[in-house]
Amino acid sequence: MSLLQLEEALKVYKHSFVKNPKFGMDLYRDDFECQGVAILEKEVTLKKNIPIKFDFYALLLCLEGELKRNLNQYEYLIPKQSLQLIPPNTIYHFENITETTQIYILLFSESYIKANQPKLLAQSIQDLFDFHIKNLQPAILKTSLFSSVYSMYEDINTELHEQQEDYTTIVKLHILKLLFILKRSKKDQNTSDAMFKTRAQQITHCYLELIEKHFLEYRKISDYAKLLDITSKHLGETIKETLGQSALSYVHHRILKEALYLLKYRPLTITQIATILAFDNPSEFTRFFKSHYKMTPKAFRLGIHH
């Protein structure tokens, strides 16, 4: 399924960044080029955005404010001093809690990091990426560590602007160090969280992971219950107990997020989107979309282009 490329994503969101920023790249410069990496600063005012998927990594450092960030099936509270990595092919959207948030944004492709790396380091880099793909949660950094991470973002910004000898290698090393710091912080948090996980919470986690893998092929709770080797009744009761909503609503919500992404960001017809989302025909897709979003796919698509 097509994902937004780095250059494409920067064009889509260009309007939300300022000209001549104090930090980060100026997307409005005539000579602006993105060669697999970009660093930006964004002040986000109160709003909720449409889900998006891209083919690169986004490493986000929250400097001020607080927001909710949704990645795949999970919602995370993002306070200041949080560091979070969004991997490729992750469906992502956010909603501000405070009126304004300030974020440093570091974007990079996997090929940018891996290019010209020695074989000895290549496997460690792949293991690092694999770890973060399986562990999407943010890390809340202690003040001393946050200061160090903040300085590394500033150093990356300087290197990308000045482009002195070996700057690409230095930038890559900074990014890898940030990813290792994030991995260590996540592991510390996971160790303490795992001690308090109940059986119901484990089932819920597995269910949400299965939805992400199978939402295009499985629409019934019985399908997921079979994969989990429990009864549909047990699964339904567990999800209601832990999350407060029906198990089926999470399958529907995931389909809706994919539909919103495809309608807004992909040059596909509604018939093509209906096929991608495994609906029997466009009318069935339209009924589903309208029942969950209170408008037709056509009306939504027309509205977002105003």
Results as ranks from 00 to 15, higher is better:
K68E: 10
K53D: 03
E64S: 12
F56I: 09
P118N: 15
Q117C: 14
I103P: 00
P88S: 05
P87Q: 15
L60K: 11
L107D: 02
I97D: 02
E110K: 11
S111V: 10
K47S: 05
D55Q: 14
L46V: 11
K68A: 13
T90W: 14
L121T: 09
E95K: 14
S109E: 03
D55W: 03
I91E: 01
T98L: 13
N89Y: 04
I103F: 07
L67I: 09
L83T: 06
Q73Y: 06
I86A: 12
I91L: 01
L59N: 15
T98H: 10
I50M: 14
L77T: 14
S109F: 00
K53V: 07
I113F: 06
Y76K: 11
K119P: 01
I86M: 07
L60I: 11
I91P: 00
Y112Q: 15
H93C: 08
I78S: 07
Y104C: 10
F54V: 12
P79T: 09
I105P: 01
S82T: 08
I113W: 13
L107G: 00
D55I: 12
H93W: 15
E66T: 03
E64F: 04
L61V: 10
L83V: 02
L107N: 05
C62G: 04
I97K: 12
L120S: 09
E66F: 05
K53Q: 14
L77Y: 09
N96M: 08
Y112P: 04
K68L: 08
Q81D: 13
F108N: 05
E75I: 11
E95D: 12
L67Y: 11
P79E: 09
C62Y: 10
Q84H: 00
Q84P: 01
P87G: 03
Y104R: 13
L60P: 02
S109I: 02
P51C: 06
E95T: 08
I97L: 15
K68T: 06
I86W: 10
K80Q: 14
T101Q: 10
Y112T: 11
Q102Y: 11
H93Y: 13
F54E: 01
K53M: 12
Q81I: 10
L121W: 05
S111M: 09
E95M: 08
A122I: 04
Q81A: 14
L59Q: 07
Y74F: 13
L67G: 09
K68W: 07
H93I: 00
Y104Q: 04
N70W: 07
Q84T: 04
R69P: 01
I52E: 01
L121Y: 13
L107K: 06
L59H: 11
E99C: 09
Q84L: 03
I113Y: 04
A115R: 15
N89V: 02
Y92G: 00
L59R: 15
N72P: 04
I113V: 15
T101C: 14
L63W: 02
N72I: 03
E75P: 01
L71S: 06
E110V: 06
P87A: 00
N96T: 14
N72G: 04
N72Y: 12
A115G: 03
L60V: 07
Q102G: 05
Q102T: 13
N89H: 12
K68F: 12
E64H: 04
I91D: 00
A122V: 13
G65F: 01
E75W: 00
F54K: 03
K80N: 12
L106D: 07
K80M: 10
S82E: 00
L107C: 13
L106Q: 11
Q73H: 09
Y92M: 01
F108P: 03
P79Y: 05
L63M: 14
I86V: 15
